[in-house]
């Protein structure tokens, strides 16, 4: 892809093309996030099943970010990195990663499905705590497997 620049052989992170969006930490914005994922996946030539899996995994990461954004409603930042052999979505927020709390009306063990789904659908899931108390989740889908 020419977007990688003239020196596309170099695989330094800074040479990679990425697309990013920032959305408010509200569950009503999850549809916008899925639209972004679909656009990125289509551009990268993924099939419908792969795009569905990415939508679910990215939504789960973002829903978790919404859940622990608390009253601050600090925005969520989403970056899609176009590697030659993989697609990496990076979701960053400014809250700490927490397992979803039980809410009235839900049985406790119906909750907390987000992380298992991410792990089941993606090839690699990493969760990092950021120095500023934020959380950074990277979801990787390897291509041509």
């Amino acid at each position: 892809m020419n977007q990688l620049g003239a020196d596309s052989a170099a695989e330094r992170h800074s040479d990679l093309r990425c697309r990013r969006i920032q959305v408010a930490a509200e569950s009503s914005r999850l549809a916008d996030i899925r639209q972004f994922v679909e656009s990125v996946g289509t551009e990268h030539g993924l099939d419908d099943n792969q795009i569905f899996d990415l939508k679910v995994a990215v939504s789960e990461a973002c829903a978790n970010a919404v859940e622990h954004s608390g009253v601050t409603k600090a925005p969520i930042e989403l970056c899609a990195w176009f590697h030659p052999d993989k697609l990496v979505f990076e979701i960053s927020d400014s809250g700490g990663f927490r397992l979803p709390r039980s809410e009235p009306g839900f049985q406790a063990d119906s909750r907390g499905l987000g992380l298992p789904l991410m792990v089941a659908l993606m090839d690699e899931v990493r969760i990092r705590k950021l120095p500023n108390a934020g959380t950074n989740v990277t979801l990787t889908l390897y291509l041509d497997r």
Partner: peptide
């Protein structure tokens, strides 16, 4: 067309 843990949690609860 799409469901994630937001909907699956309700379906699991209903199933139980």
């Amino acid at each position: 067309t799409y469901i994630d843990s937001g909907g699956i949690s309700v379906i699991l609860g209903t199933f139980r």
